[in-house]
Design a protein around this nucleic acid. Sequence first.
DNA 1: TCACTTTAGTGAGCGGTGCTCTCTCAGTGT
DNA 2: ACACTGAGAGAGCACCGCTCACTAAAGTGA
Lengths: 214, 214
Amino acid sequence: MADIKRIAREQLAVQGGAALSLRAIARELGIVSSAMYRYVPSRDELLTMLIEDAYNAVGDVAEAADAACERADVVGRWKAIGTAVRAWAVAVPSEYALIYGSPVPGYAAPPDRTITPGTRVTRLLIGVISEADSAYAGPNPVMAPPVREDVRGIRESLGVRGDDDLVARAVLAWTAVFGLISFELFGQFAGGVHDPAAHFDHQLDRLALLVGLA
Amino acid sequence: MADIKRIAREQLAVQGGAALSLRAIARELGIVSSAMYRYVPSRDELLTMLIEDAYNAVGDVAEAADAACERADVVGRWKAIGTAVRAWAVAVPSEYALIYGSPVPGYAAPPDRTITPGTRVTRLLIGVISEADSAYAGPNPVMAPPVREDVRGIRESLGVRGDDDLVARAVLAWTAVFGLISFELFGQFAGGVHDPAAHFDHQLDRLALLVGLA
DNA sequence: TCACTTTAGTGAGCGGTGCTCTCTCAGTGT
DNA sequence: ACACTGAGAGAGCACCGCTCACTAAAGTGA
């Protein structure tokens, strides 16, 4: 099973998610293709496992980065988490694409197995923001009732504190972090941003200001 | 050719990008699979055409939305463009995924045919921001030399005005817009945001503030 | 020791895929 | 009448996920 996953990840790295082939894995393993089904119920199930693993991998590095920081240093924690997530994504772009890219066609990941591990980074990023005493002094737009409701739901399901505006800003910042990484990895920055690491770091600073961390 | 593209888009809508099948298109067309190659050099080439079309489609709706606004109403233009892009994405999520999602594996879109049409929305969004007299009064983080260089390159290649900080904020806002759309379409908001349209609209307001439009 | 069960793997086969090749055949311009 | 062209047919290659019946070895309890 470990071998299968290892080879699957290798194949993922060079070919991408949708091209994941049980036959190719079997070939590499010196095994006939049908024997794969002793270990893996189906290709989709293997994909789901890899997605789960990827969520947990990025969750691990994010939590480790956060844990290495002084608790009170919220800016440092924010930047450490963001930097760690980007570093992970750059190191294994295919696994990042698996979970944050377009869904693999003809296959929908079962929510009950991907939502929970997928929330770890979200909880971390939004949690750091909500733990800080926000220094944001700028204006806030009016919030329509349905938005307010969603924001309150997010605050409760993530178990964080902070007023509605802060949580809304945190959601925006969280989204922007992954927007930056996706744009970098999926080629939207091609030709424009030549030093994506430095650019990401800079925008992390801007987002920290946006959410009132600094 | 028009029929092929039409059916391809239909197939795209129900199955997703990587599952695009020339044989299925041929079947639908009442034609044998090999006859497809009279019209389409390869599956990848068809994919590239669809990507080109998608970029131009979203570029069209964005430019139309912008053109319908009073020139001086920069906030209105910003929101109109963002809303139009999201509406297009929600209407044809598979085409959105094709261009803003993870690249289809084993296939890299030729940059010379995708970069240019892909820049239209970018130019529009960042252009609107740069045309306004920024009302942003908040702080700006220090900008490392490589970031400054990239920002200047972007300003020049897009032909916009505004100081380095404004352009950097514009890039962040542009990225966040697509981050929001991607999170919605790719399921990252699942369970958290129940009214994505209202949420998107709200965050568009926040981004307008961030870049000093309001 | 012997029968039984579990485990791991084989190999054939089904229907699907992209793509290439050679072939046919109806039009068309001269 | 004749050569040429466009559009399609059909066979075939190598690949894919997946199923099924089968086998051989390894462990296990009486």
